[in-house]
């Protein structure tokens, strides 16, 4: 089990506060989803946990170790991130792409070992990407490409997986397919998953815990039932919703929603 703790984190870029006093302990082995309006700092928070962006103040601890004191390859073995815009500038064969996940484990002149190949094969099988592992990335549909990227994340062998909007650009079928893969894997491997989602119902359905962010701050953090209140929806998203309980799953759902007050470009009329 790997614990991830964020303590007193502040981040200012160009005199703008991007993150303000973030304190968060991620539930290890569970799925946590961060929701919030555009520009609230969700993606930035993920990037600070993987040290792609360095926090101004405060720290991230992985197993009580400050990530700024970890070697970059050691951190990569603990935390893997799937960026929102993971488009390739160059075309690669699917399997060749996924083999790059083993980079943190390789020494200078070392090639992939039999174990590495085993892990890559497993990761491709888990997402069903093994069907097209010999094809080029440019030949794949959006849903297929996303499965390859998740395989890459899996093969990196990290305990903590960060997914920045894994469903963006996918149609509804492939959104659910991707989220199901993530949930099933989480049950099987007990990796800690943190994702950013825009669809509130998907966040409710797939998460053990939801973190609501607004203007760089954490507004609320808790189980889906705790978080989904009209106060939160008003305050954070400026919408009003009809919150009901799904008769089959017994979980809360947002069955309809409307703007809280009429706005144009976010400004009240």
């Amino acid at each position: 089990m790997t614990s991830v703790t964020i303590e007193n984190m502040d981040l200012t870029i160009d005199k703008k506060d991007i993150l303000k006093n973030i304190n968060l302990e991620l539930m290890s082995g569970k799925i946590t989803t961060i929701i919030g309006p555009n520009g609230c700092g969700k993606s930035t928070l993920l990037k600070t946990v993987s040290n792609i962006i360095q926090a101004g103040e405060g720290s991230v601890y992985i197993n009580d170790l400050d990530i700024r004191r970890m070697k970059s390859k050691a951190l990569a073995k603990k935390v893997a991130i799937l960026s929102q815009k993971n488009r390739l500038q160059y075309d690669l064969k699917v399997r060749d792409l996924v083999s790059f996940s083993r980079y943190p484990y390789l020494r200078r002149f070392q090639g992939l070992t039999a174990d590495d190949h085993k892990i890559i094969d497993w990761a491709l099988r888990e997402t069903g990407a093994d069907e097209f592992s010999g094809r080029m990335m440019s030949e794949l549909s959006g849903g297929q490409a996303q499965r390859v990227w998740i395989s890459l994340l899996l093969a990196q062998g990290s305990d903590v997986l960060l997914l920045d909007e894994p469903t963006t650009y996918l149609d509804i079928h492939h959104q659910l397919e991707t989220l199901n893969i993530i949930r099933d894997l989480n049950k099987k491997t007990r990796q800690t998953v943190v994702m950013v989602l825009h669809d509130i119902n998907q966040a409710l359905k797939y998460s053990d815990e939801i973190v609501v962010m607004n203007r760089g701050e954490i507004v609320r953090c808790g189980t889906p039932a705790d978080v989904l209140t009209n106060d939160i929806l008003n305050e954070v998203f400026n919408i009003n919703g009809r919150i009901t309980t799904d008769p089959v799953t017994g979980k809360p759902v947002l069955s309809d929603y409307e703007l809280f007050c009429r706005t144009v470009n976010g400004r009240a009329l």
Partner: peptide, 13 residues
Amino acid sequence: LFGEEMAASLGQN
């Protein structure tokens, strides 16, 4: 070739 973010995520200096 992966771009800056992916390379950073793989632990490249």
